[in-house]
């Protein structure tokens, strides 16, 4: 019976089995709370009678997810906002920093890719700036910009710019001479050549860079929001840790993963739309 199913169906069944087994092991691994027996005077005074904090079982996390997702946009003060609002703030920062980066990286990458001189002149700067952890920019950003929200956006900008810049330059430099010659023999101007030949030819490489960048931006925003505080999914995780609400921490970790997956899937779709076979 199993052999008759398609590859995807078999994989889906296996995924569900692994999920179920994982959840069962997790549920079973949580030690049951010991019944409070006879306590000494000292134990009673130090709170030994209260249940110990532990990793919550999956059933509790699912219950939390149900509560949060059934009302994701409530706003009950600065430290009590729905998960939807927190993710919304994070997405707003990621996307604004990311699109600013794209606005700079793609035209600059075009220039670097077209001109070997520009490539050689700018390469040392890129090589020095690229390996810097984006969070290392935070203190400088806070000092110069004097606004924690804008500083978070700046950090996203600086971490998203490199993969897009390098991939655009690489893609543009790698456009086959034949295709450029086709544009030349058809008397296309520089701008028309850029938009009708070089851009579509380099698009798969450029979009790959954009996809890497959005992944990195989503990784970095969590850490950045833990630092700047106030709103966002990163702040939410840290706030719930301070509240010792591990159920919420686990729930928000899962939400970070799901949103990251959705962002990646969007860029994968874009990648498919610009792909071509030679």
């Amino acid at each position: 019976m199993f052999a008759n199913l398609s590859l995807n169906q078999r994989a889906a069944i296996l995924s569900l089995v692994l999920l179920a087994v994982g959840l069962l092991i997790w549920e079973a691994a949580i030690p049951a709370q010991k019944a409070v027996g006879e306590l000494t005077e000292y134990e009673r005074l130090t709170g030994g009678g209260a249940p110990k904090a532990g990793i919550p079982p999956p059933s509790e996390v699912l219950g939390k997810a149900w509560d949060e997702l059934s009302n994701p946009f409530y706003d009950a003060g600065p430290n009590d906002k729905g998960i939807g609002i927190q993710i919304g703030y994070s997405l707003y920062r990621v996307l604004s920093g990311y699109f600013l980066a794209a606005l700079v990286a793609i035209p600059l990458g075009f220039l670097i890719g077209m001109s070997p001189v520009a490539y050689r002149a700018l390469n040392p700067f890129i090589q020095v700036l690229r390996p810097i952890s984006p969070l290392a920019w935070m203190p400088l950003a806070l000092f110069v910009i004097q606004d924690s929200q804008l500083s978070a956006i700046f950090v996203i900008f600086i971490c998203s710019i490199w993969p897009m810049l390098l991939n655009t330059a690489f893609g543009v430099a790698g456009v086959r001479d034949d295709w450029v010659n086709v544009a030349r023999t058809h008397e296309l101007g520089h701008l028309r050549t850029a938009f009708t030949v070089i851009l579509p030819a380099a698009a798969p490489t450029i979009v790959t860079g954009m996809r890497i960048s959005i992944g990195i931006a989503w990784l970095v925003i969590v850490a950045a929001e833990m630092l700047v505080g106030g709103t966002g999914i990163g702040y939410y995780v840290w706030n719930e840790w301070n509240n010792l609400d591990l159920t919420s921490v686990i729930f928000s970790i899962l939400m970070i993963g799901i949103v990251g997956m959705a962002l990646d899937a969007a860029f994968a779709a874009l990648q498919r739309s610009v792909a071509y076979a030679e």
């Binding site: 034949d178 295709w179 010659n181 086709v182 023999t185 058809h186 008397e187 009708t196 610009v274 076979a277």
Partner: peptide
């Protein structure tokens, strides 16, 4: 310099692979 007055057919066809056959000619 190159010009539309001198058309070229290259050995490796040099069609733009992201365009259909028709779009390559309309190009």
């Amino acid at each position: 310099g190159p010009s539309l007055d001198r058309g070229v057919v290259f050995q490796n066809y040099s069609l733009l692979p992201w365009l259909s056959a028709l779009s390559n000619v309309t190009f």
